[in-house]
Simulated assay, not measured.
Amino acid sequence: MAVYDLLRLPSPDVREVIARMPVAVIPFGSVEQHGAHLPCGTDVFAAEGVAKALAEKLGCLFVPFGPYGTTAPHVGLPGTISLSRSTFEGLIRDISHQLIDGGVKLLIMLNWHEAHSSAIQSVCAEVQKETGAKVVLAHAHFVAQRIYAPEGGRLTHAGSIETLAVMAHDPSLVHADRFKTPHRTAKAEALDAMRRSHEVYGFVTDVRDLSEDGWYGDPTWAKPEAAVHFTDRVASEVANRLFEVWEVLGVDRPNPATASAA
């Protein structure tokens, strides 16, 4: 199956792909520090890699959002660039409305950044209510956590699963010679569990409350042989869940587009 990347397609081809498959996948990452061993674009590479694989499986349009997002806990550390929530939400809203005006009937928001969750969810609900198009939100980082947890992988900042994601994108961007044990604070484990609770929780507004180094986890867990299958494994599981969600929503399962790829 081809990848129908909006940036690489001429306008008539975009129209043709949407006419045959009115679905668009939009990835959301973040530009933020990931220690000395991973690049500041880690979340972007992870989100775009899984989103492209998903779009290829579905035969639908892949629409880059741009690298930036909201990442306040990392502000002040070199390489971090954070948008305001209003700017971030405004971009999502504008892009979504224009895609829908162009014929897209189903938007798939593919997220790889926890700090985005509330903002994206809020805009998704608004866009669906305002336009009548269906919007589905997929948190690919949590999908990856579920897949790799039985194998020892953990979803920590710049840790095992994120290192695996960067290996899948470009192994040369992983600086294995800089791997070390991060200096976690005494309350790091408790704070991390608290902020991820789905019931009663507080907030961590500075990543250094978890680690003096700004990252935590075990990057040595990630291996090149596992990275080869990373994007496909995560995208396949997201696709399986999408089909379940679409059935509940009463959305017909789309048929893959067959237009020539760029």
Score class of each variant (00 low, 15 high):
164 L>N: 00
173 L>Q: 14
89 E>H: 12
129 K>E: 14
102 G>A: 13
132 G>V: 14
148 Y>C: 10
108 I>H: 06
156 T>L: 06
83 L>S: 01
172 S>M: 03
170 D>N: 15
150 P>G: 14
158 A>K: 08
82 S>L: 12
166 V>S: 02
113 H>C: 07
142 F>R: 09
152 G>Y: 08
116 H>K: 02
79 G>F: 03
97 H>W: 07
138 A>L: 00
150 P>E: 13
157 H>S: 10
127 V>W: 02
116 H>E: 08
116 H>R: 03
128 Q>F: 05
129 K>H: 11
169 H>S: 11
161 I>T: 05
158 A>I: 14
94 D>H: 13
118 S>L: 14
173 L>T: 09
146 R>E: 15
155 L>G: 12
162 E>C: 13
127 V>D: 11
151 E>S: 14
96 S>D: 10
88 F>R: 11
119 A>W: 05
109 M>R: 00
151 E>R: 15
120 I>S: 05
161 I>S: 05
172 S>T: 15
132 G>H: 01
111 N>V: 15
145 Q>I: 01
139 H>M: 10
82 S>K: 06
86 S>V: 12
140 A>D: 05
104 V>R: 04
139 H>L: 09
165 A>C: 01
149 A>Q: 05
139 H>V: 14
163 T>A: 08
132 G>D: 03
115 A>Q: 07
157 H>A: 13
80 T>R: 07
96 S>V: 04
126 E>G: 01
142 F>A: 08
79 G>C: 11
144 A>D: 11
83 L>H: 04
155 L>C: 08
81 I>G: 00
156 T>V: 13
115 A>R: 07
94 D>C: 03
136 V>G: 13
81 I>E: 03
173 L>H: 10
137 L>T: 13
109 M>Q: 02
133 A>G: 04
106 L>Q: 10
100 I>T: 02
118 S>A: 15
146 R>F: 13
156 T>W: 05
144 A>I: 14
93 R>K: 15
114 E>L: 12
119 A>C: 09
114 E>Q: 09
107 L>S: 05
92 I>D: 00
111 N>T: 14
140 A>Y: 04
146 R>H: 13
133 A>T: 12
124 C>P: 02
132 G>K: 06
89 E>S: 14
141 H>V: 14
90 G>E: 06
140 A>W: 12
110 L>R: 08
115 A>S: 14
172 S>L: 12
97 H>G: 00
86 S>G: 01
